[in-house]
Amino acid sequence: MADFGITRVGVVAHPRKPVRDSVDVLVSFAERHGVELVVRETDAAQVGAGVAVVSDEGFAAGVDAVVSLGGDGTMLGAMRLAVERPVPVLGVNYGNVGFLVEIAPAELAGAIERVHAGDFEVEPHSRTAASRWKRATRPRSRSTTSSSAGPSPARRWRSTCWSTGRSSGTTAVTP
């Protein structure tokens, strides 16, 4: 197949998993094909030397492909970075479950060669945009209440959880 035109590959790494072997595979690939590897400042320490460090904005605006080294959470983070300018995102499984990531670390060398050659299929994933209303005071922790009328075993639960952290998913249930 013809060269797909990849000249700059972004690397997103899990903050605690030992991904250096996969980074070495990517560095070797980049040297053979004249491809620039870049990493965001937040991932630079985990990835190590040999990969150019760029800002988040520079990362998202300038990559032709992204390699996610981690689990599903890392993959979702990588896809969020590329959402405004869709590029191929290849997931390498360093996690425990791996619903979204496609390959094992041992398969990375062959897989990145296929991506470079354009020999891949895009698996589209949808996203949901959500907004929330603001209250004058926000609870600082989870709160759960229950109510019961009489001796009936049925209970009604209301739970509220406010979070500012990252997550792999959100479940919303309505009556």
Rank of each mutant, 00 (worst) to 15 (best):
R156E: 08
R80M: 04
G5V: 09
V35S: 02
A52M: 01
F120Y: 15
S28N: 12
W162I: 09
G95F: 08
G71V: 03
R114N: 12
L108V: 07
I103V: 14
S152E: 07
A104K: 13
L90W: 03
W157M: 13
I103F: 07
E41L: 12
S22T: 11
G73L: 03
P139N: 10
G91T: 04
E102T: 09
L26C: 03
G169T: 11
I6Q: 01
A2N: 10
G98T: 09
V122G: 02
D3V: 04
S68P: 02
V27P: 05
R138C: 00
D119Q: 15
R80T: 01
A117P: 06
S148F: 03
D56N: 12
E107L: 06
V173H: 03
V39W: 05
P175M: 07
V67R: 05
A106V: 09
S168M: 15
V12T: 13
A78M: 04
Y94V: 02
E31Y: 00
G70H: 07
S146A: 08
R114V: 06
V35D: 04
R20V: 06
T42I: 15
G169S: 10
Q46F: 05
S55R: 10
E102R: 05
D72I: 03
H33R: 15
V54K: 09
H125P: 00
R16V: 14
A45Y: 04
V54I: 11
Y94N: 04
